[in-house]
Design a protein around this nucleic acid. Structure first.
Lengths: 229, 229
DNA sequence: CTTTTGTATTCTGTATGCAGCATTTTCTGT
DNA sequence: ACAGAAAATGCTGCATACAGAATACAAAAG
């Protein structure tokens, strides 16, 4: 992927709704996040404030603030007097994260079955169907994005802000790994099959089943990505 | 508690080990954290950069960086063009956090039984005994601190960095609530009893039992603090 | 040829200055 | 006297400037 670093475009408006001024901080944070996830900034790379700021067309002050924010999210590491470096995750780190993610999604599954409205479930079904379509066509990138969306959406159904937060942090940390990991056809098929089970269980509001499938799905996720780590 | 705000003392050394220079950022972050937890900055309060910086004896720049860091931790909220305010947690928020914390500690319990060394368990036993001593004397503050330490220590035993991270974030967010919550004698006794069960289960390395007790303990925690929220 | 030390450069850490937005106060018209 | 508008104040957001630490390089000594 390795795009070249492009200056940050400061979009003036967020579209419809109340006219909200540019929030440079947020823009910078997500921009840097993407750069890390997509590999423009690979693990171990030092985040050079002067250079990076110049490339993005931003002064050091807001850049530093964004870096501190990302540090708290765990994407970069702050070394006193030596700046920030992109955090490197070991295989064990990834496995640990998946273990926690598994537990969180199991919980999310249970809560979702209790709290979700039919309409919300229907939306996820739509995402799922679209994802399957992408799978059949072999569109990996869109598949990947829809996959993430579905998992996040199920967590949203649980209507538990803390759960969504924790899940989001881990999901973000893992994005880079998943972004790289390219499982073979048979494993991909298995993943899709698990997703199918998920949707069925959700529509049936079968707590135990949904929780079980989500857990199994993430256990298998480890098998799928372990080679890439 | 409401201490008056005191200038930040810049400690020169962290004790033994390699002589490390003052890390103002870290100091500021934990100082602000403490101020929020202990109620010097109550929920809804705007964090006035000029004023606060002057009181702490620090310029606005590092202060802003620390605030951004805390924002990512979820202790303060950033409002565009209007600075940062201390986040206010609703009863549902607290309940949600405890739900997630429960799940995480259940997981920690299972992992801890597998991974912990005898020595590590002995250390927790020591903390526990000390805590019980404090309970018998009625020393609430020390009891509270040791209580937190024990929970964190058990999570540490699991040797899962991601788990420890997520647990730490939630623990921090809840600290303020727990700091306030003063349960009555009978509930306090029940909590101590649960801790007793925990230690016994841990020493027996009884995964199921430890996990169950930890879960129950946190369910009850909600009963103990719900009045304070 | 290797090692060590002194110096120069580069980068981080912190302070300060300036512009724009939000809010409040004051002024004006009815 | 009251409503609305305009000015004034205060604060945030960003940029720049300065000081100190770390690193890299070069020269000299073993």
């Amino acid at each position: 992927m390795m795009n070249e670093i492009t200056p940050l475009e400061r979009r003036a408006d967020g579209g419809p709704g109340p006219i909200r001024r540019t929030a440079l901080h947020d823009t910078l944070v997500s921009h840097l996040r993407d750069m890390i996830i997509e590999g423009d900034l690979s693990p171990g790379t030092r985040l050079h404030e002067g250079q990076l700021g110049e490339q993005l067309g931003v002064s050091r002050t807001p850049l530093r603030e964004a870096i501190k924010y990302l540090a708290s999210e765990g994407l970069v590491e702050l070394v006193p007097s030596r700046g920030a470096v992109v955090k490197r995750f070991s295989a064990k780190d990834v496995h640990d994260m998946l273990t926690v993610l598994q537990t969180l999604e199991e919980l999310a599954g249970k809560l979702a079955c209790e709290a979700a409205s039919d309409a919300a479930i229907a939306e996820i079904r739509a995402l799922h169907d679209e994802m399957v379509r992408r799978y059949k066509v072999g569109d990996r990138l869109q598949y990947y994005k829809l996959n993430q969306q579905i998992h996040s959406a199920i967590v949203q159904l649980a209507e538990n802000a803390a759960l969504a937060d924790m899940h989001g942090v881990l999901q973000t940390r893992l994005k880079r790994i998943r972004f790289i990991g390219h499982e073979g056809p048979e494993k991909w098929a298995a993943a899709v099959a698990e997703h199918d089970e998920m949707i069925v269980a959700l529509e049936a509001r079968d707590k135990a089943k949904l929780s079980e499938v989500l857990g199994r799905h993430l256990m298998n996720a480890w098998e799928r990505v372990r080679a890439s780590v």
